[in-house]
């Protein structure tokens, strides 16, 4: 990364959009994200007025609630240079769907578009914005990576996680079959259609297991909880983790679904 001498005193201010799942279920991912963003030369601020990006309401057809949450999120984050979320799904919601949701309101539409233009998923922020190509981490494991749908298709995140994983000393990435196919989580889908969701995650678990990895990684906690839940139910020894924990070199917390 070229050093910009004119700006050495003021680091970019990043507002961390923690995401509701990381906040409630797995803070270690949030701290890993903070470590990575700081290592990329930014200051991290966590606005306490954030809750959720609004997808549960948005995907249930409740536009009024979603709009209210979107406006609150915009107000909380629009002062930062960047907004970063350790989730392609939530970043995709802010980046892709907020402007669409608020497009009939001229004032909020402008603010939504402005926020969208500086919002990034964590790994994409590190690679695409901060031009990071390696991390300082070492881990002797065989890992496989699931491309979560929103990150992959809404934000075009494919090479970025692989670039950074390749720089982890000792980590051997083995691609599984159908790594771009949905794991069957889909937020409330997993509760509303558990039979179908199960058939999908069963397939995912089979493909992941076939690569005989120590670690199954992805960039979205929802997918990770789904895949971990299935693997643990099957008695699998594969550890399931968010990619940020590996890149930050901090595996001190037990893997997802383990104590």
């Amino acid at each position: 990364m070229p050093l910009d001498t004119s700006k050495t005193t003021t680091k970019p201010q990043v507002g961390l959009f923690v995401t509701c799942l990381v906040d409630l279920m797995r803070p270690s991912i949030g701290f890993a994200a903070v470590k990575l963003i700081e290592a990329a030369g930014c200051d991290v601020v966590v606005p306490p007025s954030q809750t959720c990006c609004g997808q549960p309401a948005y995907n249930s057809g409740d536009k009024a609630t979603t709009s209210a949450i979107a406006r609150a999120t915009i107000a909380a984050f629009e002062g930062f240079d960047y907004v970063v979320a350790p989730s392609g799904s939530c970043a995709g919601m802010i980046k892709g769907h907020y402007p669409d949701l608020l497009k009939t309101d001229p004032e909020w539409s402008k603010r939504a578009v402005a926020l969208a233009s500086k919002t990034y998923e964590l790994v994409s922020f590190l690679v695409d914005v901060r031009a990071i190509s390696s991390v300082d981490a070492e881990l002797k494991v065989r890992a496989t990576y699931h491309d979560s749908c929103s990150g992959l298709r809404e934000l075009k995140i494919k090479s970025q996680p692989r670039t950074l994983l390749a720089s982890v000393k000792g980590l051997d990435l083995v691609e599984m079959e159908e790594n771009e196919v949905c794991c069957g989580f889909g937020g409330t889908f997993s509760i509303k259609y558990p039979d179908i969701s199960n058939a999908m995650v069963q397939k995912k678990a089979d493909f992941a297991s076939a690569t005989k990895p120590d670690l199954l990684l992805a960039g979205d906690l929802g997918c990770l909880m789904n895949m971990a839940g299935k693997l643990k139910r099957q008695g699998s020894r594969i550890e399931v983790r968010h990619i940020a924990e590996v890149l930050a070199g901090d595996l001190s917390a037990p893997a997802i679904g383990e104590a």
Binding site: D23, F31, V46, K192, P194, S197, N198, R233, G257
Partner: peptide, 21 residues
């Protein structure tokens, strides 16, 4: 619906916001 087929990972303990504060 979830736990019929899968385990549900438990929360780590306290929330990120709490720990961050």
């Amino acid at each position: 619906g979830w736990t019929r087929y899968r385990d549900l990972p438990a929360p780590q303990g306290r929330t990120f916001q709490q720990l961050w504060a």
